[in-house]
Design a protein around this nucleic acid. Sequence first.
DNA 1: AAATATTTTAAGGTTCTATTAAGTTATGTC
DNA 2: GACATAACTTAATAGAACCTTAAAATATTT
Lengths: 219, 219
Amino acid sequence: MRILYVEDEKYLADAVIHMLKKSDIAVDWADDGEKGLDMSVNPIYDAIVLDVMLPKLSGFDILKAIRDRNIKTPVIMLSALSEVEDKVKGLTMGADDYLSKPFKTSELIARLNALNRRPPLKAETEIHFEDLSLNIDNRTLNNIPLTEKEAAIMEILIKNPDVVQKKEYLLAKIWGSESLTEENYIEVYMSYLRKKLKTLKSKCAIKTIRNLGYKLICK
Amino acid sequence: MRILYVEDEKYLADAVIHMLKKSDIAVDWADDGEKGLDMSVNPIYDAIVLDVMLPKLSGFDILKAIRDRNIKTPVIMLSALSEVEDKVKGLTMGADDYLSKPFKTSELIARLNALNRRPPLKAETEIHFEDLSLNIDNRTLNNIPLTEKEAAIMEILIKNPDVVQKKEYLLAKIWGSESLTEENYIEVYMSYLRKKLKTLKSKCAIKTIRNLGYKLICK
DNA sequence: AAATATTTTAAGGTTCTATTAAGTTATGTC
DNA sequence: GACATAACTTAATAGAACCTTAAAATATTT
């Protein structure tokens, strides 16, 4: 794992970097906000550890700048301000985690590892796959409107192409139920969605895996 | 978003659930560890919020149990023990986040949203052997579809290559029966599987051990 | 309150898988 | 090599799972 660490206190930085390296985490260090931002846009990092109080640009400024540029690198904010409002501010601005100073490096390492167990972020409202683009906000698939249920099913399928979604899972997730009368719901909606995929002349189709569920496949 | 909240203090739970609902987060509540574990295995939840100190099973117990079962639902641990060691323990056991009590619900909400900005981890369901790869979820062998019974037989063979599987064992395991009329079932399905292995031009083949059973062998 | 859109229900039709059965081929024994 | 037995293959059938459609019930918009 390779991370960027933006921190102006050299003593602290040296100590933390030393510990991280022992845990096999490569660290690039920036000692002010400007350098930090310049280096942040580099996509090689698995995570960015961002102090809030920095010379020139604050951690929040950097966070905002990189998220505005649609860069999804996981960010852990670091601050002596342990106020809940600050944590919330960081997290809603797109940070993935928030650690109060002083912290133990072992906790930072654990949090870095936790972050990197998950795949990187995808873009928000539009989901693209092959020749399909599903817009969650408008509820449209390649500009043709979908109903709420259709969109909910399509979202799950398109986010996991080629992965079978079990019937019970879809029922539970979308209808919040497990009753058998409702088994037919899913069949009806798959039929609707297939019709729409056909009118779109999409390369993709919904495949049934008998006794299991459905998945999205493309030519 | 729908989450599972495992918490034994009813007062706290009521307050938190109320706030979460206002933020459009649906909450199912379990008030002890056993119920919590039972409900955790249901794949409908976008996250599980887990108190550590619980009757019957601790939050750590639940976390371990669900991660052992390869369930990837994001977990936030909740505890009055704010010791760093505990946080590290939770995070290394596969929790995605850790929140110390007391906490503000706004922070919990921010963290839930941060977690759900990331796509869920997929469970790995592929079994590899020589030039074969069996996907249990998709029910495919090297991307060609298998039926339910074919997949069930193949799973047993591929998990125990070079080990003879007795006819009666396969019958009992897959058909749940020992009748002799059904002896032919297995022969029919071995024939189907062999045909598919041939179309795959696999190095592997199913060998018959007369009067005993079958095993998978490879060149 | 009417018009429209969406969801649910229900019924009949279609497709696929598992089972059955019968003929064929392989294996081991004398 | 002849025989008996076990296993293989294939095609036909039955039944379950799934699809489609249209109408009824709800929900939403105008």
